[in-house]
Design a protein around this nucleic acid. Structure first.
Lengths: 342, 342
DNA sequence: GACGTTAATGGTAGCGCTACCATATTGTCA
DNA sequence: TGACAATATGGTAGCGCTACCATTAACGTC
């Protein structure tokens, strides 16, 4: 008589019957073989092999009330920033029983909301979210859910749970200070994909320049389009048109900085004498470019690492650290900005 | 009296009790509200809100025998090739009830095996794998599992199930033919992260040059290190040392091509006159570089799109197409290789 | 007014696994 | 030798949900 339901796959019970043991013994053997005598162990292993049994992780999670999934939400997968963070996350999760599940919000808050609901419905061991601009609903859902949450990439007050990143505004300020020190006075900003981080960099740029009494709104070129090298070239032309006098550009992204370098090469504008260029994130290519490009180095890998280790400590119950961790940033001075010995 | 087990979260039963309906009615309302009368619908919605009920997707998947997860295994997340493919996958999955789960094999077959087992244990709706070099065990597991599988990025005989990509060997051949036509005769190869695709490009390079009687083993520089722009500079120096006569370099990656361009700029070697450069994949930056860089354009987005649409058709039961789809490639001729009017 | 027919709802029994407790077996020590 | 652990195994009852079938009410139809 056929079963009424069922997938047709072998179950733990099929294995148990075949090996002439109780189902629970098979379960034990899968979780911790040392709890089963060598004799049965062998018999069970044999049955598993013969029946091609693969345990069903959903059923396990449901029965045990434990889930080994750590969910990660990133706004983009083509952005190298998140690729590096994910590397840090993977490396740290690797020697644990957890596994990483990545989802892509594509810079959309609605999509982020949707994905957070989906994840909460999975009851994951923890969630890692990008940025600190989750919707009110999402925040409430997460706070009620009791799932450990880490917000990464930025710092800020009022974390949902834990937070690891740095201040994008401060980083922008340090860029402006550097350019100012090197003698640049007509400093422009180029930004693409104006997500909250980018906005905060722009805000730091404005605030600092206003304080130095050097702010000029014509020296800004921003767009919602996604960042690219070609776009850097376009934005530079646009900035140059808006104010031919500009002598430096702070780029919200390294892509744009590289594009601006290419545009300067094409127009035979000397970098760093006529135009200083500063990027953001310090991707690997920045130091390899000719001339090498000044950029703000951010600890992306470290952010991923620390996010996971905080989660692990939280799960084990020995999380004591601060709720908000600032990993800082470092301005890498290179040949795309003048070196003024002071 | 407290429950013996349970997570403490509200369940569908709590909602049912609160709304004074049967649990199954709540379930129905969640799946298809039209099957529930407006009166109950409202009451149930109210209870869900009050109790902060979030359905448990594992339990649903277990009970219904259906899983809405499509698993994707990629070898790298920092590689723009896969970022573009994932974009295609996401865009196509987006308007379906399915959701994407990404995992990273990090170019390791053992890791790939491990992840395939994990995924099979989840009984996903389908799996997308990168390349065609899965282990024997993994193949066997997948074939027994009855899960729809698409192997992407390459073409080849004997797919596990479906396959979408192109021939990396043929692409390499077309690069060599182009360089040869433009008058280059001492053609070198630079390759990093020698994964199976890279090996096949190298193999195409060798085969074609041997056929042209132009092969010289000193004109190869490869490494297992991961690809980067700086590495391109290093490999060029190495190639130049091994044979100072080289007049063109076929790079297995666009990163390397850009690095070689920078190295030539630093050494004041004229591109394309003294050295021709060809990249692979045609990332966005290639056309923006100065000079613009010749590269092999690959349909990465399309691969992702088609992988998902094949899966959807397979699940719906109306998959008729060929098992192996070749999306081809296109050589984008630009200013890093000489233009010889013929 | 008896008899379908449809729509709306509920009860029961699983899905495949593990927590919890019970039982059997063996070893250890006074 | 008896008492008591420690070890090895199994039975049962869930985990939170839905498939399947049953039931009830409401509406024609001849």
């Amino acid at each position: 008589m056929a079963k009424r339901r069922g997938s047709g796959r072998s179950t733990i019970n099929d294995v148990a019957v075949h090996a002439k043991v109780g189902a629970i013994t098979v379960s034990r053997m899968l979780r911790d073989p040392s709890k089963v005598s060598p004799k049965l162990r062998e018999r069970i292993e044999e049955s598993i092999r013969l029946l091609k049994y693969v345990p069903d992780s959903k059923a396990r999670a449901l029965a045990s009330g434990q889930n080994d999934v750590i969910g990660v939400l990133v706004p983009s997968l083509s952005n190298n920033v998140f690729a590096d963070i994910l590397r840090g996350i993977h490396d740290t999760v690797h020697e644990t029983p957890y596994q990483v599940q990545i989802a892509n919000t594509r810079y959309s808050t609605e999509e982020e909301d949707r994905l957070i609901s989906l994840f909460v419905g999975q009851r994951p061991a923890a969630l890692i979210l990008s940025g600190r601009d989750q919707s009110k609903n999402a925040r409430a859902l997460l706070e009620d859910s009791n799932i450990p949450v880490v917000q990464i990439v930025e710092t800020g007050a009022d974390p949902i749970d834990m937070m690891i990143g740095f201040s994008h505004e401060d980083a922008a300020v340090s860029v402006i200070d550097h350019l100012f020190e090197q003698g640049y006075r007509k400093i422009a900003f180029a930004g693409a994909r104006m997500d909250p981080r980018m906005e905060r960099r722009l805000s730091g740029f404005r605030t600092r320049l206003k304080a130095l009494d050097l702010y000029d709104s014509r020296r800004e070129a921003t767009t919602q389009k996604s960042s690219s090298v070609s776009l850097g070239r376009t934005l530079f032309r646009q900035l140059h048109e808006q104010d031919p006098q500009i002598d430096a550009v702070f780029c919200g992204n390294d892509d744009l900085a590289l594009g601006i370098l290419f545009e300067c090469q094409a127009q035979q504008i000397n970098v760093p004498e006529k135009i200083g260029i500063v990027g953001f994130n310090d991707l690997e290519m920045m130091s390899a470019a000719v001339p090498s490009l000044t950029s703000v180095r951010t600890s992306r890998y470290e952010i991923g690492e620390q996010a996971v280790s905080s989660i692990l400590r939280r799960i084990k119950g020995n999380f004591t650290g601060p709720k908000v961790v600032d990993v800082g940033f470092e301005l890498m001075r290179r040949n795309s900005t003048k070196l003024k010995k002071s």
